[in-house]
Simulated assay, not measured.
Amino acid sequence: MTGFGQEDAATTFDPLRPKLIRVAYRMLGSVADAEDMVQEAFIRWIRADRPSVREPEAFLRRTVTRLCLDQLKSARRQRETYVGPWLPDPVVEEEQEEDVTLPLMLALERLSPLERAAFLLHDVFGLGFEEVAETIQRDPAACRQLAARARSHVREARPRFKVDQQHGLELATAFFTASRSGDMKALGAMLAADVSIHADGGGKRSAAIKPILGLEAVMNVHEHLAALFIKHGSHLVHTGFVNGLPGFVTREADGELQTTALEIEDGKVVAIYVVRNPDKLKHLH
């Protein structure tokens, strides 16, 4: 393949890359894997008979989705041996991303790869079932069933309460301040009675092996952590939206980054998602 051929391929591909990464990340929950799938799609695009492709975006979306379906099979096996709760790689943005929030991504983990693809392509990315069918190589009626099954599974995970962006960021800042300074009264006032903590250390940094459930247990954990934060430090790097939820990035005493995302309902924090696994934070550096 000549250099001109590659440049020609890149001219079409590069403007579509962000959209393709978006599809792949929502399929896989891993930034590195999403980038790998999109790069593999580019290699296939270079080799393709490009003049015969009427709609490059549809062709590339199909290619990326099929690569992700293959990748999901091996990812499932890896998840079975994962140490502690698994959370998707944190994506930190300035604006709130509302189509696929972190709780919804966790709900997608419980779907089969085909259900996940049908739901994302139709319900999130707005494709018709004819194109979904062509992408996942099933007939449209089967794709409708897959999406309907997926919808019933993930209905509870879709945001029921729209959180005002500014209020969400203010709550995240207040949560950081109270949790790091040991102001347990202020912290307790922000938490719902059924609040939970989900911490992903991946066996590489200390984190609870199981979710911590209920206000009393969560407060006990934060009282213990506050003593460590006061002694060793925990520095705010950025406040923003982590996978669509208000949250923040910190640099902890070991020099590593950490993300905290807060799920909020009725003005109270109902879930705290903490990613500590350094493999999932590399892209944030």
Rank of each mutant, 00 (worst) to 15 (best):
E40F: 02
A148S: 13
Y273N: 04
Q71A: 09
V221H: 06
P211M: 02
R47T: 01
L171F: 15
I136Y: 14
H224I: 12
R158M: 09
R144H: 07
R116Y: 09
G255T: 07
A172E: 12
S112H: 15
V270P: 07
A189H: 07
V218I: 07
V237H: 00
P103E: 00
Y25L: 00
M184K: 02
I136W: 02
R77Y: 15
D33M: 00
D36T: 10
A174S: 09
V275L: 09
L108T: 00
V38S: 06
D139I: 01
D279F: 06
D70V: 12
A133F: 11
A133D: 14
V92I: 13
K282H: 11
V274G: 08
P15I: 13
A24M: 03
S181G: 12
T101H: 01
A58M: 04
T173H: 11
V218Y: 05
Q71Y: 13
R116M: 09
A48T: 06
R151A: 05
M27P: 03
A226K: 02
E98R: 09
Q71G: 11
I230N: 07
C68M: 09
H283P: 11
E216R: 15
I43Y: 14
K73I: 15
A199V: 05
P18F: 03
D49Q: 09
L171N: 02
D70F: 15
H198A: 05
A133C: 07
H153N: 02
H153C: 05
A141V: 08
I197R: 09
G128V: 11
V218Q: 05
A10M: 07
L236A: 04
S206Q: 12
L106P: 05
G247D: 05
V100R: 01
A174F: 11
T173N: 08
G233S: 01
D164Q: 06
Q6L: 01
T11K: 09
P51C: 11
L191N: 08
P85T: 07
V270G: 04
T12W: 13
H283M: 11
A58K: 14
Q165M: 11
R251C: 03
E95M: 04
A142I: 15
P246C: 06
V218A: 07
Q258G: 01
Q6N: 01
E109I: 01
F119P: 00
S30F: 00
P140G: 10
G202T: 12
E131T: 08
L191V: 10
L146P: 11
F129H: 05
E80Q: 14
G5Q: 09
A178C: 13
P113Y: 12
V83M: 10
E35R: 03
Y82F: 10
V83P: 13
E130L: 04
K204C: 06
E94T: 06
A9S: 06
L106I: 05
R17S: 10
P15D: 08
D49F: 02
F13D: 03
G168A: 11
E7F: 09
L106F: 01
G182I: 04
L121Q: 03
T12D: 12
A226I: 14
T65S: 03
A226C: 05
E97L: 13
P88W: 13
K268Y: 14
S74V: 10
P56G: 14
R155D: 01
R61D: 01
V274L: 14
A172G: 10
S181N: 10
A261C: 13
P88R: 05
K231Q: 14
K231N: 13
L146W: 06
F125W: 00
I212P: 03
L169I: 15
G188W: 04
R138T: 08
D14N: 13
G255R: 14
V195R: 07
G168N: 05
A150C: 08
